[in-house]
Write a protein that binds this DNA or RNA. Structure first.
Lengths: 242, 242
DNA sequence: ATCTGTCGTTAATAATTGTTAAGACGAGGA
DNA sequence: TCCTCGTCTTAACAATTATTAACGACAGAT
């Protein structure tokens, strides 16, 4: 028998769900899962029987390229608290990418069996969960856009702008310090840059008094400047109107 | 009363639907829509009350960047016959990007009202449609990967490899000539390259006897070479097992 | 305590790609 | 017919970014 978790808060993108629907699905999350930074949460091709909701920390979607996937890593998405990390495994049964913990993370799990039982009689809840994955898709499109159209400085600034916006949305506050725990090579993997060039870009952002990234921690000194350098428009995030 | 269309074939990604579910939803497509190459099918922010299924031709998802969106265009996705172009508008109500016809296209429409009625009593069909949008999301992730990790030659080759695979999947055959109707700047918009550099890349592919792109038409001379140059692994397309 | 590996930093160099400009070509209109 | 427009093509040049290398700092392992 799985242990019962404490009630979960309706944070971040979960606010796309109406409160009534949230209270309907929240009790179905019956187990907690912890992963330490660097651990693999799930692997490409592995059949999944449950989906995970991220409560705390950051996870990344990673794809390995090259012959027999032995080459470089690349980060194609980052998830923040309130995101489902695995929800697409419910309809698709299997994922085409790895999921790795960037920071230490805490997640809540719901089995696909129970999900199916609930969704079968709640089409509107189905539609709301579907929406969550569609917002992820919109974010993926933006990552393609970022890597396709922006120069290095703007790319990194834009990634930071997106992440702080999404992290703020999770907490419901606006902060100025964020623990991302990404190494400079990680940022390069996400933005399509070499680690060396990420280092140059971070120095530029620091010298522009825009933001400082050190030891996995992002400190935003001038958010307006960050958004300007990033040409950041959060429309694609489909943030719930407050 | 909308005109009734002729029965639609279950092509391309629609084969993710079981035949039983397809026959359930197929009659709901009650109107046809045609667009000429270059026309805008729907615009960012415009509320949509129906979704479109692509029957013939190619459409692109386009995002404008820069202050007040007056800058460059970028293509973040291309859809081929058998794809829904608009299905995410059903849960999301509104799109964050424009949809433009690349070639002349023919589409079938289903109203969200009827979709809601059908899906409300068919949770398994809901899940299958959800899957279709999740495959699109996987393709988006691959586009981010392509623009982030690959050099120009590989990027264009990879885009071509993806498109011919998806177009073949639509027709159920393997061909060697494909009408894409993309200009060289279009390809640049999709791959994050300048039009001039696309021209250089196309010459390389031609001189390698790999494939020839001219007048909007792609002729694949050596598919193995194309897939090799592209480092192409179609796993992410979640092709239905045949 | 020492070794080992990863990360961060910087510089020098090389490769890739963007920009600008100009001419060729073809389609379609006056 | 001639003109115009958009696309394709190429060249020359400039800007961006990757690569390699070297070194210091640090953490974990033995």
């Amino acid at each position: 028998m799985p242990e019962k978790t404490a009630p979960l808060a309706q944070i971040g993108m979960l606010r796309h769900l109406t409160h009534a629907h949230w209270t309907r699905i929240e009790p179905e999350f019956s187990t907690l899962r912890h992963c330490a930074a660097g651990e693999t949460v799930s692997e490409r091709g592995q059949p999944l029987s449950q989906s995970l909701l991220l409560l705390d920390g950051i996870v990344g979607r990673r794809i390995r390229t090259g012959r027999n996937h032995s080459g470089r890593h690349h980060l194609v998405a980052l998830q923040v608290p309130g995101d489902f990390v695995d929800l697409h495994a419910y309809p698709l049964k299997v994922l085409d990418h790895d999921i790795v913990a960037i920071t230490d993370v805490r997640m809540a799990a719901v089995s696909h069996t129970r999900l199916k039982a609930v969704l079968g009689s709640h089409p509107e809840l189905s539609r709301q969960l579907w929406s969550l994955t569609l917002v992820d898709a919109a974010i993926h499109r933006h990552w393609a856009l970022r890597n396709g159209t922006m120069r290095a400085l703007q790319r990194v600034a834009n990634l930071f702008a997106e992440l702080v916006t999404r992290l703020d949305e999770g907490h419901g506050t606006t902060g100025d310090t964020y623990l991302l725990n990404l190494t400079q090579p990680h940022i390069g993997d996400a933005c399509g840059l070499s680690g060396v060039h990420v280092n140059r870009v971070l120095r530029s952002l620091r010298e522009a008094n825009c933001c400082t990234y050190a030891k996995g921690r992002l400190v935003v000194q001038d958010r307006a400047a960050l958004n300007r350098i990033a040409d950041f428009d959060p429309y694609y995030l489909y943030l719930p109107e407050t």
